[in-house]
Design a protein around this nucleic acid. Structure first.
Lengths: 221, 221
DNA sequence: GTGTTAACTTAATGTTTCCTTAAGATGATT
DNA sequence: AATCATCTTAAGGAAACATTAAGTTAACAC
């Protein structure tokens, strides 16, 4: 998640940048309005923090300018201008929230999270260079998409979700195939073979190991 | 636009109800938490205004309860509890905004509008060369209008709103057809077929992919 | 209210994909 | 070397999806 801070007071910028980075956000800063505008033109941000009084282009105009071509990115005003009238003006200009200085950093973080909350984070599982995107239902190896069938996908996902733990054949039959009694025709082997082939995994030394007599185990290397 | 006010102080309720109705909103009120919960269960609101201290179920718990089954509807806390800690708690419970009493009615209206703006802002959905104008209720491909029926329109809209995420058949039946139990006659296939035909989408390489055994997914290319 | 049309749903048929089985090959273990 | 588990391949059959047609419902005009 990439946040842009447009603010000219150095102390505040540093305070915000450090705090937000500690929260795990990527942060870019601009110390005047025109620099902020330039950045917005050339890059995609997930959220913008905006001061009102800025050199060159003020925050209100910048907000309007951003909204002309981008209606989506959340903009939060962060300003000492705290009259009702100004708040309203800021919101009318296209801002999504308006926080008055002095503000609590914690509250700011919570309000930022509100905007990210509904952006459904696609859950991504990894196994070394392999990524499984559950919401997109795709598998990537080295950023290249690998087409798996439904069962292959389910089996691989199961192993990766249990990464580091041995999955017995019976567990796999139970959880992936929903076969609750002992009955093994060798389906698992067939699918393991298909998965290894498609993902180009070597039997011996790669991410998915065979535990002879027991089952399989997935592991990062 | 239908707003629910959950608030026990009669004076505030009347003040809000009248004011918001003058702004053109439809307003429903509940004077305690359990009544509010009941209304939310049985009706669809576009926004909820919530007091914190309420008889029977307090606002915080009500907010959490609503969020269990509904992540989308904006919730605005409107309360005299004004410490930073409480604000944060409210936002963490799933609220989208937190306004402290006493508040300016104008600011409230503006903040309400913010939440509806995003809805209007995304009134034009896109999927590659396809545009869906929700307010005009039309679909364009390469600026040329394509006539879709109601259900076709709803299904396409649903997929595009969930762009990049797999929509399972059950989800589609639930959200588009409002069938909440497992019952698939193959309607979805028929409509998918109609949509693809009208929009001239190839099954293999185009915007809407079939995920065998799961459902469908829309994606820009 | 009735007739007409369009839209929605169900059902039937065709097509494709993939799941399973089985059987031979390979490799490990005793 | 013999045995057993796993790997590998191929083929039949089943399941899922696409497509078409027919039946049913809902909407609209008159």
């Amino acid at each position: 998640m990439h946040i842009l801070i447009v603010e000219d007071e150095l102390g505040i910028v540093q305070f915000l940048q450090q705090g937000l980075q500690e929260e795990g956000y990527e942060v870019t800063t601009a110390n005047d309005g025109s620099k902020g505008f330039e950045l917005v033109q050339n890059q995609q941000f997930d959220l913008i923090l905006l001061d009102w009084m800025l050199p060159k282009i003020n925050g209100l105009d910048l907000c309007k300018a951003i909204r002309i071509k981008d209606q989506k990115t959340p903009i939060i005003f962060l300003t000492a201008k705290d009259t009702v009238h100004e708040t309203i003006e800021g919101l009318k200009a296209g801002a999504n929230d308006y926080i008055k200085k002095p503000f609590s950093f914690e509250e700011l973080v919570e309000r930022i999270k509100v905007h990210f909350r509904n952006r459904k984070g696609s859950e991504i599982l990894t196994l070394g260079a392999i990524k499984i995107d559950l919401s997109k239902h795709i598998v990537l190896k080295n950023e290249e998409e690998i087409a798996l069938t439904q069962r292959e996908f389910e089996l691989l996902t199961y192993l990766v979700q249990n990464k580091g733990k041995v999955c017995t054949r019976n567990q796999i039959l139970k959880d992936v195939w929903e076969i609750n009694f002992e009955y093994d025709t060798g389906v698992i082997d067939v699918f393991m073979n298909a998965i290894r082939k498609k993902l180009n995994l070597k039997i011996e030394e790669d991410y998915i190991k065979t535990i002879r007599g027991i089952g399989y185990i997935a592991n990062d290397l």
